[in-house]
Structures are given as C-alpha cells and as structure tokens.
C-alpha cells in the first residue's frame, strides 16, 4: 500500500460510526462496521448452534457449512481488510483454500481402505 492510500484509509476510519446497509438505510453504532460485523457473527453462531442441536436432517450440514463460510468471509473481508487492501492478497488466500477444498473433498470421497 502506498502512502496516499494509507492516509486515505485513515481518514475513512476517523469519523464514521455509520454503516450503510444495502437497502439505502444506515445504522450508527460505536465502532461502525466492525461492531456491526461482530453482531452478525454472534447471531450466525447462535444460528449454527440451534441448527446443530436440532435433530439431524438433510439440511443440517449444508446450513452449518454455509453459516461458517459466511462467518469466515465476514472476518476476512472486514477484519482482515481484504475489501480495501491489495487485490493480490485475495488470490494469496483463495488459491490455497481452493486447493484445500479440493483435497478435502477427495479425501472424503476415497474409501478408507483400498478397494
């Protein structure tokens, strides 16, 4: 990041406790977007625990995975500043995650012992 961008980011941080929501509305709370994200993370966790405690169904695993994916994306985007930082960092994160998912799926697909 070069100097200009850094001071720019800083001035962005300074005054705003306002979070603009997609629908054109906005919320003001101390800590701005960071606090907002934290609230969503907490809610998602509660949601996950409820889903897990309910009897297992077809949707249990997909819902869990979806919620945890969403949480991870939120943290990475807002707390680790991937939304504003150098674009190449996204690549640096996404490539190994892709490789990981590929291998994990493969390991799941292979029977535990040879055929």
């Amino acid at each position: 990041m070069d100097e200009n961008k850094q001071t720019h980011a800083q001035s962005e941080h300074a005054p705003n406790d306002t979070v603009h929501l997609p629908g054109g509305r906005s919320i003001t709370l101390p800590g701005g977007i960071y606090t907002f994200v934290f609230v969503i993370l907490a809610l998602l966790t509660v949601f996950e625990i409820i889903v897990a405690e309910l009897p297992d169904g077809f949707f249990t695993l997909p819902l869990l995975l979806l919620a945890s994916l969403l949480k991870a994306v939120l943290v990475v985007t807002f707390y680790m500043h991937l939304n504003t930082d150098n674009r190449i960092f996204r690549l640096v994160l996404l490539i190994p995650v892709g490789v990981m998912l590929l291998s994990a799926m493969w390991l799941l697909a292979v029977p535990p012992v040879a055929w």
Binding site: T45, E48, I49, V51, A52, L61, L64, L65, A67, S68, K71, A72, V75, V76, Y79, M80
Partner: peptide, 18 residues
Amino acid sequence: WHFVDVVWIVLFTVIYLW
C-alpha cells in the same frame, strides 16, 4: 489473530457441531 479466529470458526463447525 483474525486468521486464528477464522480457523476456529471452521473448527467449531466441523468438529463440534457436525
């Protein structure tokens, strides 16, 4: 620190909830 948090988010779901 956030990365460690993300790892926990995944661990929590995969190990404790699934």
